[in-house]
């Protein structure tokens, strides 16, 4: 509102160009880092994940950057594997939640009744704490890998749906949509040619911003014991196991894997925010 006063004449303090340049730098850096994690994890020698009772409980060293656990497994290798697992599950969850959000938002553009239904279901899902919904779904599906994926995939759409719905309703009011409707275009045609192109940047940004949430929730629900079985090197499992060894002073079992997760999630956060900024500066 207040920006009206600083009108066209007083150009913004930072020029759009340098803003965009900085966003691009951040995006490329983030993508490189993420690619690094994945490639490194793929290159990990399977031997490192094996039990090696002779090198148990060693503190971090050059040979084992993150130390080893009570079975002598290299924690660095386990952490990297865990990160890629989290990433894969997170991607799957964010992708399907984006799909659900898109479906619901298009549905709500159909008519008033469907719109009300979508709003109601969204509110319903938001009325229970997220973690409770995850537990509920995990129990319903029977826990394990399936439980986590189904739970994460089916619970990350409500806030995103609200956002997309608002966008769709706004486009629906736009003049060119009215023109298309008068020309006798079908709803599907309008959805494909008007809504989707408009929604695409929102979908991308929304997907990227969902990712860190999904990854964190995966770690949390696994940590609580609902997710992966204990032999999977998921970050949640690693951290949950580390709890039995904390009192004996094996701090590295919890410290490094958690830190690695924080770093990866932060990178995604940064990526999402930078792309959002890019989308904002290019459209406005």
């Amino acid at each position: 509102m207040s920006m009206q006063r600083i009108d066209a004449y007083a150009t913004p303090t930072k020029s759009n160009r340098s803003e965009r340049q900085r966003a691009w730098t951040r995006i490329i850096l983030a993508l490189l880092l993420l690619a690094g994690i994945v490639v490194w994890a793929l290159l990990i020698n399977a031997d490192n994940l094996k039990v090696n009772l002779e090198g148990r409980n060693t503190a971090p060293s050059l040979a084992h950057l993150f130390g080893t656990d009570w079975l002598g497994r290299d924690m660095f290798a386990r952490t990297l594997k865990g990160l890629t697992l989290s990433l894969a599950v997170g991607m799957l969850a964010a992708l399907s939640s984006t799909g659900i959000a898109l479906f619901f938002s298009l549905l709500s553009s159909w008519n008033k009744w469907l719109d009300d239904m979508v709003t109601w279901v969204t509110d319903l899902f938001l009325s229970i704490p997220h973690i409770v919904t995850l537990i509920l779904l995990s129990v319903a599906v029977g826990g394990g890998f399936k439980g986590v994926v189904v739970g994460l995939a089916l619970t990350h759409w409500p806030r995103f749906t609200r956002l997309l719905r608002a966008e769709v309703l706004q486009v629906k009011e736009a003049e060119y949509v009215g023109v298309s409707r008068q020309l006798g275009r079908s709803r599907l045609w309008i959805a494909r040619h008007h809504f989707l192109p408009h929604l695409f940047p929102h979908l991308l940004v929304g997907f990227l911003l969902l990712l860190p949430h999904a990854i964190l929730h995966e770690a949390a629900i696994t940590f609580l014991g609902f997710g992966f079985s204990t032999d999977t090197p998921a970050i949640g499992v690693i951290l949950s196991e580390s709890m039995s060894y904390l009192s004996t002073g094996l701090w590295w079992l919890a410290f490094f894997p958690g830190l690695a997760l924080v770093i990866m999630v932060s990178i995604f956060e940064l990526l999402g925010r930078s792309i959002r900024r890019l989308a904002e500066t290019s459209s406005g």
Partner: peptide, 16 residues
């Protein structure tokens, strides 16, 4: 005159 708030960079000044 408006200047960029990053003093380390040589951004064009805007004289209003």
């Amino acid at each position: 005159t408006f200047h960029s708030d990053r003093k380390d960079r040589q951004e064009p000044l805007t004289q209003v």
